[in-house]
């Protein structure tokens, strides 16, 4: 279980990295934390001709509160993000989600940029970013652009990043008054990929969820926004009937995959359980 041979580059700057990406085209892969890429290399599921290691590019590991919101640099390690008071204060959803991501010795290397760009549909961070209405900053030789999280994830491990483009940061809008977050997931064991995860972000007013953004992981090819369930919740008094209606709406709008870990029916059922728990949690918080 050793990787196929590749050449290795460690650019010292973003322009150098972009030049290498252009040079290698489809043969080049960006190496950030490596916690998903290196297993794929070891198993020879990925056999790139060149790795472009961006870990030594200065300035990419920032965790900063700016005018645009909370900026998490591509190389911010999940362990640092998890422990950041800024994240706890301004993106509590992410702070709640990160302890579920694998294990400590993985989170010390795993990066925000890698976690987003890898776009595993069962991963926690992409679901959080979509729920929070975040954006992805990408840079290429053509310039930089911002991509809304909802548009960024295109399919299983497929994103809107184009050839020669590298993710430099994600931006999470500042937490607006009245908004609460709740992250919950069901995994067979602590640290495993979730069978289903729910990133819930909602504005609570008068004992109701005035607005809700519900994004699920593990139930589709990308993080899945549960628009019908959100609509069923919005502004309603949450009695048993309303909860049932929201859970029904969710079950109808989800089309989860079946795999060795869970059938589609199980995932649909568990999503409903998580929805009920999230609603109760958000209202009680």
């Amino acid at each position: 279980m050793k990787p196929a041979p590749f050449v290795y580059h460690r650019p010292a700057s973003l322009p150098d990295a972009l030049a290498l990406l252009e040079r290698y085209g489809a043969e080049g892969r960006v190496l950030a934390g490596g916690q998903s890429l290196v297993p794929a290399l070891n198993m020879r599921l990925a056999t790139p001709g060149a790795l472009i290691d961006i870990n030594r590019i200065p300035g990419l590991d920032e965790i900063r509160l700016g005018a645009e919101g909370l900026v998490l640099g591509a190389l911010a390690r999940l362990d640092a993000v998890e422990r950041s008071p800024l994240v706890a204060a301004h993106a509590p959803l992410i702070a709640q989600a990160l302890p579920h991501v694998a294990h400590l010795a993985v989170r010390t290397r795993s990066t925000v940029g890698g976690g987003i760009a890898h776009a595993d549909p069962a991963a926690e961070l992409p679901a959080c970013l979509v729920a929070l209405g975040g954006t992805v900053r990408a840079l290429s030789r053509r310039g930089s652009r911002e991509i809304g999280a909802a548009e960024f994830f295109r399919g299983v491990c497929t994103t809107a990043l184009g050839p020669g483009e590298v993710l430099t940061a994600v931006v999470v809008p500042r937490l607006a008054p009245g908004w609460r977050s709740r992250f919950d997931e069901l995994a067979r064991r602590h640290g495993d990929y979730a069978l289903v995860a729910l990133a819930a972000h909602a504005r609570v007013a008068d004992g109701t969820l005035a607005e809700a953004r519900l994004v699920l992981a593990g139930v589709g090819a990308t993080p899945v926004r549960a628009a019908r369930a959100e609509a069923a919740l919005a502004g309603r008094r949450m009695d048993a009937a309303a909860l049932d209606a929201a859970a029904r709406a969710l079950a109808e709008e989800l089309d989860p995959p079946s795999d060795v870990h869970a059938s589609a029916a199980l995932r649909r059922h568990l999503a409903g359980v998580l929805l009920r728990r999230a609603v109760r949690g958000l209202l009680e918080a």
Partner: peptide, 28 residues
């Protein structure tokens, strides 16, 4: 509770990594 070598109908092992074959860990 967890461990299972799962095969499909063609005899392909579907639980061929430690991410799919679930051994007991300390938390559970």
């Amino acid at each position: 509770l967890w461990e299972h070598c799962v095969y499909d109908a063609e005899g392909q092992l579907l639980t061929g990594t430690m991410m799919d074959y679930l051994v007991p860990l300390a938390a559970e």
